[in-house]
Simulated scan of single mutants.
Amino acid sequence: MGRFPATSTSGAVPASLGPGESEPPRASRPTARPENDLVLQSGRKHMKAYQRGMDGAAFSQLVVAVPTALISLLVVGIVFSLVSPLLGVVAAVLWLLSGPLVFQRRVEGAIARHLIGMRHPTPAEAERLGTVWEEVTRRAGVDPATYELWIQERAELNATAAAGHIVGVTRHALDRLPDSRLAAVLAHELGHHVGGHTWAGMLAEWYALPARTAGRWIVLGLTALFRTKKFAGIACGGCLSLFIVQFLLIFAFTESMWWLVLSVAAGPVLITWLNHRAEFRADAYAVGLGFGDELLEVLETEHRAGAAPAGSPQGGQPYFVPPPPPYVPGPAATPRPGLTPDTTRLVTKAAHTKFEARIRQLRHNLADG
């Protein structure tokens, strides 16, 4: 389900051909749809021996995630040790070995459906995506059946590389993008998969989950205590805050674990920078496949739509960069509950800055190419 073999859409001879007639060359086929402007290259390209790899951005993301993973391992061991010391050791080992499970097809499907809000394409969507995906993967020398195409109900011209074998295309992109630009977006996401950004990010998020969950619970608990506006609650919150600060100081300096504390504190900043580098690499990959001009048009269109005032003819919906997996389901252009107007403006400004940087780098790649 969701896979598109190389022969699924273009390998069959149309039924309208009579005996002895041959199928016209791919590049000269009549366009059945106004959006069917993708130039299909003729000729066969051999599949690459390695369908995916790990570039510098993916490797660096794994390295940056190690300190948080160590804290997660400690959290899992401590929680289950409250029941039994032996159970704590067993749970920590099992959790450490559970990483590869997130790359199983069924687990990936559950993540895509329930955490990212994806669905399988309809037959009509699968037919169109199959033709475009076949051209992208053929140029890349990648087996199209290696990955699955899913649909996201999100209001942005985007696609998402998720888990280890899933590429999600937004319904908005299917409705508004012609085939050439849709191919450029898919080529960009294929670059994430081929470079290893997707599986490295998923693995890093998985191993960081216990530590981040514990951190959120601590923050929520302290916030609840301070919001009681009662002396007992505020006093308990203050005491717990002082205890946490004292524990971190002792752990960092007395136990000489300052490198771990510093690494965890700097982790989000480094991961954000590495994500930007991964975007540049995926853009360069799309340029290498011959989709640079089309990708530049998509980025400029989305950038203009995000910069336009609300209610303007250009669109006016701010572009919200999706968080690292597990993603929050729902339209990406809808502000999350609880965001203040100032925070919303900061997020929108950051997204615009990211677009501008990608556009500049993409133009540089096209000029060099």
Rank of each mutant, 00 (worst) to 15 (best):
S16E: 11
A232W: 12
L17Y: 02
A284R: 14
L346P: 01
V102Y: 01
E127G: 12
H188Q: 08
V66M: 13
L220P: 01
L295S: 03
P313F: 09
R3F: 00
V132Y: 06
L74Q: 06
A110S: 06
H193S: 02
L366T: 07
G168S: 14
G315T: 07
A140Q: 03
D342L: 15
L70H: 07
M1P: 03
T160P: 07
N36V: 11
A32Y: 12
G43I: 01
W259S: 08
G99Q: 11
D368M: 11
V132H: 07
P5K: 01
W217C: 13
Y147D: 00
E300K: 12
A350R: 14
E153I: 08
I166Y: 03
Q361W: 09
P5S: 06
T31D: 15
H352F: 08
E297M: 11
S72W: 07
R128P: 05
E255N: 11
Q51G: 07
I234T: 11
R216V: 14
S256A: 14
R154W: 13
A235S: 12
Q317M: 12
G141T: 05
Y327L: 14
G369T: 10
M202R: 02
L17I: 03
A252F: 04
A214D: 04
L115T: 02
I71K: 04
R277M: 10
S98C: 08
F243R: 08
A332C: 12
P341W: 05
R181E: 15
S72A: 12
R360T: 13
H276L: 09
L82P: 03
L115H: 00
L62G: 11
V107F: 01
D293W: 00
L260N: 04
F291I: 02
V107D: 00
M118V: 07
A310I: 09
A333P: 06
W150K: 10
E108G: 03
P335K: 04
R212C: 02
M257N: 15
A183F: 12
R336W: 08
I218C: 13
A6K: 00
A162S: 13
L86W: 15
F80D: 01
A57E: 08
R119Q: 09
L174H: 09
T213G: 11
T344K: 15
A278W: 04
L296K: 06
T343K: 14
V219P: 04
P178R: 10
G215M: 11
L203R: 01
R176T: 11
A367G: 11
A333I: 06
V287T: 10
V132F: 05
A124L: 13
A91T: 11
L177H: 06
F103M: 04
G233P: 01
L38N: 07
T228F: 00
P121W: 01
I359Q: 02
R171I: 08
L296N: 09
F80K: 04
F243I: 14
L174G: 10
G168R: 04
V287I: 06
E135W: 06
G88V: 02
F247G: 14
G77Q: 15
P324S: 15
G43N: 03
E189C: 04
A140Y: 03
A350V: 04
R277I: 06
